[in-house]
Amino acid sequence: MSGPPKLQILLVEDEALLLEVITADLEDAGFGVFQAETAEGAMNILRAGSSVDLLFTDIRLPGQMDGWQLAEAARTLRPDLPVIYATGFSQTPPRLIDGSLFFTKPYRATAIIRAIQSLTAAPGA
């Protein structure tokens, strides 16, 4: 007998240590985690058809896209994908899309987990 399927989080963070710590926190909370260090890597995961229930992205990322652009591009593929943004510092003004939340670093894992649960809760649950 298996329980409900795990929610799958796409975690995009270029700081390797933080990526590992957050992944461990999310997995401990019962989530599955796809990891990407760049927006381009995250888009490859989404384009591959991976089962992703929520995008959790840093704003400042190496490569051609930042977290704002990643979320906008991800929504072209998955219009209902919930998004959580996080940043320690961003010179660009926030461009939050509908159905998203924003956290500043440092943040507590418990706050992120609650946010994931609130964004992915089934309607009427």
Rank of each mutant, 00 (worst) to 15 (best):
V33W: 04
A36G: 04
E37F: 06
E37H: 10
T38Q: 05
T38K: 02
A39H: 00
A39F: 03
A39G: 12
E40V: 00
E40R: 01
G41W: 00
G41P: 01
G41I: 01
M43N: 05
M43K: 05
N44S: 15
N44I: 11
N44W: 12
N44K: 14
I45F: 05
I45C: 09
L46V: 06
L46Q: 08
L46G: 03
L46T: 02
L46D: 00
R47N: 12
S50I: 00
S51K: 15
S51F: 13
S51I: 12
V52G: 06
V52L: 09
D53L: 10
D53V: 11
D53F: 09
L54H: 02
L54E: 05
L54F: 04
L55P: 00
L55Y: 01
L55Q: 02
F56C: 10
F56H: 11
F56V: 14
T57Y: 03
T57N: 08
T57C: 07
D58I: 07
D58E: 11
D58P: 10
I59D: 09
I59T: 10
R60P: 10
L61I: 06
L61T: 03
L61Q: 06
L61F: 08
P62W: 04
P62Y: 10
P62K: 04
P62E: 07
P62G: 08
G63S: 00
G63Y: 01
M65L: 15
M65N: 03
M65G: 09
D66K: 03
D66A: 05
D66H: 03
G67W: 03
G67F: 05
W68R: 02
W68N: 08
W68L: 07
Q69R: 12
Q69L: 11
L70Q: 00
L70G: 10
L70R: 04
L70V: 08
L70I: 09
A71Y: 03
A71C: 09
E72R: 15
E72H: 15
E72Q: 15
E72N: 12
A73R: 13
A73Q: 13
R75K: 15
R75Y: 06
R75M: 09
T76E: 15
R78D: 13
R78K: 14
R78I: 13
P79A: 10
D80C: 12
D80M: 14
D80L: 14
L81D: 11
L81R: 12
L81I: 12
P82Y: 04
V83F: 05
V83H: 06
V83E: 09
V83N: 07
